[in-house]
């Protein structure tokens, strides 16, 4: 069955996208299922422009956004007073951080920060594109990203300190 073959080919890669946008396995599983259903139902709309994997990935990102879009909006209104001072400026050593640890850091973020960070830092979207996708202002997008980075930096730094103290 062609659908199952495609699923087997792409499921692990797309599940990787799903877990990045989710904070638990169940949500990621839901996004994976909804995403593949969309892919199979809309596959005739793929016009051959760009890579097929890119098209599929985009569907999964959009599916993930649908799940968390409301959360990004509801909370974003209170998000303009970030305190960026007193942030520990450690240089984390990324070699010591596994995929699992990085993923755990991202999943610990609240949806508003996790989604924007994923879109900007990993997917490479601009703030303008993010603001359009999530229906938030560019300022909110920047603010959420900044906050996400700060939190992640703290987590990485904390991890680095713990590792160093163990050594």
């Amino acid at each position: 069955m062609a659908q199952k073959a495609l699923y087997e080919l792409m499921s692990s890669k797309m599940f990787g996208v799903c877990v990045r946008y989710s904070n638990n396995h169940e949500d990621a599983q839901d996004i994976l299922q909804d995403g593949f259903v969309k892919v199979f139902e809309k596959i005739t709309q793929y016009e051959g422009k760009g890579s097929f994997e890119g098209w599929v990935r985009r569907i999964f990102v959009n599916t993930a956004l649908e799940k968390f879009r409301g959360q990004v909006r509801i909370i974003a209104t209170e998000d303009n007073l970030l305190k960026l001072n007193n942030i520990d400026q450690h240089d984390p050593v990324n070699d010591q951080l596994s995929e699992k640890e990085l993923l755990a850091f991202i999943q610990e973020l609240s949806p508003k920060y996790r989604v924007v960070f994923n879109l900007y830092a990993i997917e490479g979207y601009s703030h303008k594109e993010i603001s359009d996708m999530l229906d938030i202002t560019e300022g909110t997008s920047k603010s959420n990203l900044s906050r996400a980075r700060t939190i992640l930096q703290q987590k990485v730094a904390k991890y680095y300190h713990q590792e160093r103290s163990v050594i």
């Binding site: 599940f15 877990v19 599983q29 400026q89 995929e99 830092a121 992640l152 930096q153």
Partner: peptide, 20 residues
């Protein structure tokens, strides 16, 4: 200051594979 943190996550999770 933030580029480095972006790179860590981009390189670490950009091609993340996970088994459903």
């Amino acid at each position: 200051r933030f580029e480095h943190i972006d790179n860590i996550f981009r390189e670490g999770l950009g091609e993340l594979n996970s088994t459903p």
